[in-house]
Amino acid sequence: MENLEVWMRGPIAGIPDLLQPVAHALLQVGEDTVKYTQQLSPEQLWARPCGNASIGFHLLHMSGVIDRMFTYAAGQSLSAEQLDYLRRESIVDMELDVATLVQNLQLQIEKALQILAAVDPGTLTEERFLGRKRIPTTLIGLLFHAAEHAQRHVGQLLVTARCLK
């Protein structure tokens, strides 16, 4: 069953039925990220072939997006630390290595799964707001966006990794 994608392996224990697709997508992000970043050098981590964003950026951004969307889902505004993290996502930091960035993403995914497990499905259509402009959305919209946005960045990360090999 390990060769199957996460969504094909069945329900994730403890996650409400309506949030299974979010959990599956987040777990797939974690697995794919590990697979596509193995054996990358520090130079490859921060390289920008053809002007594409670096793999380091994608790893930082996926963690940040999941954190931010789940913060908005909780009805909260971003903290000063989260805003600082957002500003630093596109800065090359040779002190950061692949293992640390992947581990940080895994921890963010685990935190997201714990939050998903506690969501009352009856609240999924409740209004929430995105960003400083307070763009109206819903709880399920924010949770789904966290997962699908991270998946998009895995795809971009994969293309960049293939260009570097």
Rank of each mutant, 00 (worst) to 15 (best):
L116I: 03
S54C: 05
P16T: 01
R162A: 07
L116V: 01
R9Y: 01
L139T: 01
Q151S: 15
N52I: 09
A147D: 03
V154Y: 03
E126A: 14
I91V: 14
A112C: 09
A161T: 01
S54L: 04
G131Y: 00
Q39M: 08
I15Y: 08
I55G: 10
E89M: 12
C50E: 15
P42K: 11
L101S: 06
L86M: 12
Y36K: 09
A146D: 03
L4S: 13
E2I: 04
L83R: 15
E31S: 08
V154G: 07
W46M: 04
K133C: 03
A53C: 03
L27E: 08
L27Y: 04
A150D: 04
E2G: 14
E89W: 09
P21E: 11
E148G: 08
R88C: 11
C163K: 13
S41Y: 03
M1L: 14
M94V: 02
Q39H: 14
Q103E: 15
V22M: 08
R132T: 04
A118L: 07
V119P: 14
N3K: 14
L139A: 09
E31K: 13
N104K: 14
A73R: 04
Q82M: 08
L4V: 02
T100Y: 06
P21W: 11
R68E: 12
L18I: 04
L107V: 07
A117V: 01
D67F: 02
Y85R: 15
L158K: 13
Y72H: 13
A146F: 01
I15M: 10
M8T: 01
L124N: 07
L113K: 09
R87C: 07
V65N: 15
V65K: 10
G14C: 05
A25M: 09
E2V: 02
G14W: 02
R9L: 03
Q103L: 09
W7Q: 10
Q82W: 00
D93S: 12
A13G: 10
L157E: 02
V154D: 04
L60E: 11
R68F: 00
N52D: 05
R128Y: 00
V22E: 08
A146P: 07
I66E: 06
M1S: 14
D84A: 13
R9I: 00
R9S: 05
E126V: 02
L105V: 01
R48T: 12
K35L: 10
A53I: 07
I140H: 13
L19F: 03
V159E: 14
D17W: 07
K35T: 12
E2N: 13
E2Q: 15
D84W: 04
D17K: 09
L83C: 12
I140L: 11
Y72Q: 08
G14P: 00
Q106E: 11
I55D: 03
C163S: 13
H61Q: 08
L83F: 00
W7R: 11
Q76P: 10
